[in-house]
């Protein structure tokens, strides 16, 4: 979006042409001011070249291209919340069905895709579906993927590589290895903060949908967070819970009430005020949120909680029993 906006616009217009859509919206999170400016300039250029607007390139087909800024809400990445926000309402996810393809924005049939997906379209059109299917791990995990590598690696960043890239290769080669040589890998969150975490001993795998599914987690957004031995898993989980507490839209009960509860339990464990029963409580509250909400944000808060508690139970117990942190780092940071 920021570096090659016309790739996104080209994919958008190709997709719109395929379904003969008369309008395409690019919904961009409110904080991405720079991205918005870049996109808007590109859209103006597209209109000037008649790639968008009335009678595109004399084809008789017209399509408007509109960049819409959100007001800064994680939930507006959920497709139905995005539509509500686009329509000018609160960014509340909608009950499904109807699905967007049947009744979407302003009750019109709508297809919603990620920018990454859309950016693939020009290449597929140019090189053909067979080429796309040959990249990565055929038959099911094919195509290029943008891996967003962050955390304790030497060179964090966005890397494009085929699906099925071994995680070790991503960390060691593309990422330049661990940030501190004396701090070994401890855990990786492979698909954005909402997916179950992997312990270091589970990290010898390929980064594709099926391999991660087999390990009980997901590739998700391919936002890969690398954590070394200095990380307190209780603090990390508390920070993740803080995020979901802050971003829950508040529409439905389990997520609205549960996300705050999870964060408070995690905070008290982190600050040494946890009770032995708190681990069961975390699992139980997570379980009560899971699957009972309108959208997946509740699950997104519950899944990491369950995996952190189960996979790093030792650390959580240490916090509760000894009121100190196993990592010996900045423990007892106080309630965030």
């Amino acid at each position: 979006m920021e570096q090659d906006p016309h790739l996104v616009l080209e994919g958008t217009l190709l997709g719109a042409y395929a379904i003969r859509a008369s309008v395409a919206y690019i919904y961009i999170r409110g904080e991405f001011v720079h991205g918005t400016r870049v996109l808007e300039r590109a859209v103006a250029e597209a209109y000037a070249a008649n790639y968008a607007g009335a009678n595109v390139l004399g084809s008789g087909w017209s399509c408007d291209l509109i960049v819409h800024r959100g007001a800064g809400a994680y939930i507006c990445g959920e497709e139905t919340a995005l539509m509500s926000s686009l329509e000018g309402d609160r960014g509340y996810p909608r009950l499904k069905p109807p699905f967007p393809a049947a009744s979407g924005v302003w009750k019109c049939p709508t297809t919603i895709n990620n920018v990454e997906t859309v950016a693939n379209i020009p290449f597929i059109v140019e090189r053909g579906a067979a080429w796309f299917s040959s990249v990565g791990k055929p038959p099911k995990n094919t195509g290029p993927k943008l891996y967003c590598l962050s955390g304790h690696v030497k060179r964090p960043g966005v890397y494009e590589a085929p699906l099925g890239l071994p995680m070790r290769e991503l960390i060691e080669e593309l990422g330049g290895g661990m940030l501190h040589t004396d701090r070994p890998l401890k855990a990786v969150i492979p698909g954005g903060s909402s997916v179950p975490v992997l312990r270091a001993d589970e990290c010898d795998l390929d980064l594709d949908f099926d391999s991660l599914m087999a390990k009980g987690t997901m590739l998700g957004s391919a936002g890969i967070m690398v954590m070394d031995s200095s990380v307190c898993m209780v603090a990390a989980m508390a920070r993740i819970a803080h995020f979901y507490h802050h971003e829950s839209c508040g529409q439905c009960t389990p997520c609205r009430e549960g996300c705050g509860w999870l964060e408070r339990i995690l905070n008290r464990i982190e600050t040494g005020l946890g009770l032995p029963s708190d681990l069961d409580l975390l699992l139980s509250v997570s379980d009560n949120i899971m699957g009972n909400t309108i959208c997946a944000l509740g699950d997104a808060a519950a899944m990491p909680t369950i995996s952190f508690v189960k996979k790093f139970e030792e650390e959580f117990r240490h916090h509760i029993e000894h009121k100190t942190c196993l990592t010996g780092t900045l423990a007892m940071q106080g309630v965030r």
């Binding site: 809400a73 609160r90 802050h246 971003e247 829950s248 839209c249 508040g250 609205r256 996300c259 705050g260």
Partner: peptide
Amino acid sequence: LGFFDRGERS
């Protein structure tokens, strides 16, 4: 009437 703020604070 409407909802104001978000999440637990709504």
